[in-house]
């Protein structure tokens, strides 16, 4: 249970960063932290005590395996996060080109 709580705290750390930081790069990093916390959640749901990794091999004795499906989900979501992060970084670079700053309080040509 303590693991789930820690994981939830990690999610909140990321959310706190997204909401309060004023630097574009720090916002992107906070988003990544949030994503990792979500991935960790999924891995924790799949975890079983005394279970091995879910890979069939020739020599291994048949033991309890952890659930492989959430791990596949996490792999997919990592790929997605990679894409989104690259997109955000590209946008941040272009924003820096236009405004010469990473500070979001100075980037406000759109109001509301």
């Amino acid at each position: 249970m303590i693991l789930y709580i820690l994981c939830f705290i990690l999610l909140l750390v990321g959310l706190y960063g997204v909401l309060t930081k004023k630097d574009l790069i720090k916002i992107i990093l906070s988003l990544s932290i949030m994503g990792y916390a979500a991935n960790l959640f999924l891995i924790l749901f799949a975890y079983k005590n005394d279970a091995i990794f879910p890979i069939l091999s020739e020599s291994a004795v048949q033991e309890a395996m952890v659930d492989p499906l959430p791990q596949a989900l996490v792999l997919t979501s990592i790929v997605i996060e990679l894409g989104i992060t690259a997109m955000l970084v590209a946008l941040a670079v272009r924003l820096y080109q236009k405004y010469k700053t990473f500070d979001i309080t100075k980037i406000r040509s759109l109001s509301g």
Partner: peptide
């Protein structure tokens, strides 16, 4: 693709195209 992403990012010249 992953290499090209970083490559494309490196092609942005940070000093070009300022507005405002």
């Amino acid at each position: 693709a992953l290499f090209l992403v970083v490559w494309s990012l490196s092609l942005f010249h940070i000093d070009e195209g300022g507005e405002q």
